[in-house]
């Protein structure tokens, strides 16, 4: 199991939308192989950039409300929220260097 924080429909507003720091939400599900593959990459990025960005996970099966609200139709979907707004979306599992370059603005 991942050591990244799990957020839910109930905690999304407080943990993500009201956060002072940018938050990357990894929308995932148990049955999605690419989600399992990208999990450890996100953990590593979180570990190395904990001061700049928070990375959390949202299980789309258990939290359909939030997944529907943000029109998730493909997972893994990684969305960065800042000030309550989505400021960056990355779809699909990508290797660490590729993901880092997509997220460069939030890791600098």
């Amino acid at each position: 199991m991942s050591n990244l924080k799990q957020v839910t429909d109930a905690t999304f507003e407080q943990d993500v939308l009201n956060s002072d720091k940018p938050v990357l939400v990894d929308f995932w599900a148990e049955w999605c192989a690419p989600c399992r593959a990208v999990g450890p990459v996100l953990e590593k990025i979180a570990e190395e950039n904990g001061d700049k960005i928070e990375i959390v996970k949202l299980n789309v099966d258990d939290n359909p409300e939030t997944a529907a609200k943000y029109h998730i139709t493909s997972i893994p979907a990684m969305k960065v929220y800042r000030g309550g707004e989505v400021v960056k979306s990355v779809i699909g599992a990508k290797p660490k260097p590729a993901l880092e370059s997509e997220l460069a603005a939030f890791l600098a």
Partner: peptide, 17 residues
């Protein structure tokens, strides 16, 4: 539109439809 309806993986994305 990839990831917004266009997909290459039904097992990953089917449940959203």
């Amino acid at each position: 539109l990839s990831g917004y309806g266009v997909s290459w993986c039904a097992t990953c994305d089917g449940a959203f439809f």
